[in-house]
């Protein structure tokens, strides 16, 4: 039991990070209807920005803010030059998939060009200490991840529910034509959404990098976990991303421990989850039912 609880808590800590990446994916899906396969690479890139600033001697928190700002710019730029011109994702899925895959390659290659192929080490944001609760040891880093996720969710809630900008972003996500007709500059808001998503991804990267080592393939597995989280939660639900993140984190931690066939592939439960949800409940737990277009 203690063993189980231990593993579960580790999973929930990981889940918080998947949820962070998921939040970014949801923001992009809601505003542009697009599954951004390059989200993980963008997060990796901005995590390298954090690392660079930190290794130049900046305090970690400042480096993270810098990385988020850098990520924001990358996200906004990517939307302007690559995503917006290609058109509606649901009318031209192939073109959009190819563009995000092009981004995947491009951002990954750019990171290799700038930072090389060696893994860098990054210190855990909340140190290497741990605390014992009911006889179960929990790393501060995991607790920190949950807290940071909580803060991010709160900020998102305030933004979307209590600011004019957030209201406008919701209007754009719901009906961009209507939004444009009340005077909302839709392209600029979409750009903002992409920037925001990339900035959020930075934080996810900062939490993962100390575990995996900061390399250019940092986020390739994590991205699938993030997608599993939002598939379960519903592609357009921020709450869903959080709940989905925790569930995926827990499953991916617990199942490989007890089911030997998953031993070397914690990704497998996440994959089965994606498949099962898309087959039997495509809108996920909290998402809106998709209207199929004929």
């Amino acid at each position: 039991m203690k063993d189980f609880l231990q593993i579960l808590l580790v999973g929930i800590g990981d889940g918080a990070v998947y949820a962070m990446l998921g939040l970014g994916l949801v923001v992009i899906y809601r505003s542009t209807g697009l599954l951004n396969f390059a989200q993980g690479e963008m997060a990796m890139f901005s995590t390298f920005i954090v690392w660079t600033m930190w290794s130049l001697g900046l305090p970690m928190w400042l480096a993270i803010l810098g990385g988020m700002a850098g990520g924001f710019c990358v996200g906004a730029l990517v939307h302007q030059v690559a995503v917006r011109p290609v058109g509606d994702p649901h009318e031209k899925p192939l073109a959009v998939v190819i563009v995000t895959i092009g981004l995947f390659l491009g951002v990954n290659g750019a990171a290799q060009l700038i930072w090389g192929t060696l893994d860098r080490s990054m210190p855990p944001l909340f140190g290497r200490g741990q605390v014992t609760v009911f006889g179960v040891a929990v790393a501060w880093q995991k607790i920190g991840a949950v807290i940071v996720l909580g803060v991010m969710v709160l900020l998102f809630y305030l933004l979307f529910q209590h600011t004019k900008l957030g209201l406008a972003m919701r209007a754009v996500a719901s009906n961009s034509e209507s939004a444009s007709l009340v005077g909302i500059p839709v392209p600029r808001l979409l750009m903002l959404g992409w920037g925001l998503a990339a900035a959020v991804g930075t934080v996810a990267g900062v939490f993962i990098a100390p575990n995996l080592g900061l390399g250019t393939n940092l986020m390739q597995l994590t991205l699938i976990f993030g997608f599993a989280a939002i598939t379960l939660g519903g592609f357009d639900s921020l709450v869903g991303a959080v709940v989905g993140g925790f569930v995926v984190g827990a499953l991916s931690s617990v199942m490989p421990r007890y089911i030997t066939i998953f031993e070397k592939m914690p990704l497998a439960p996440a994959f089965i989850l994606i498949l099962a949800v898309l087959l039997f409940r495509p809108e996920g737990l909290f998402g809106k039912k998709q209207v199929t277009r004929v």
Partner: peptide
Amino acid sequence: IQPARAVILGVLLILLML
């Protein structure tokens, strides 16, 4: 600059779609 091959391919793909 060999990693540039991924960058070039990526940019090429995007340009192609556009």
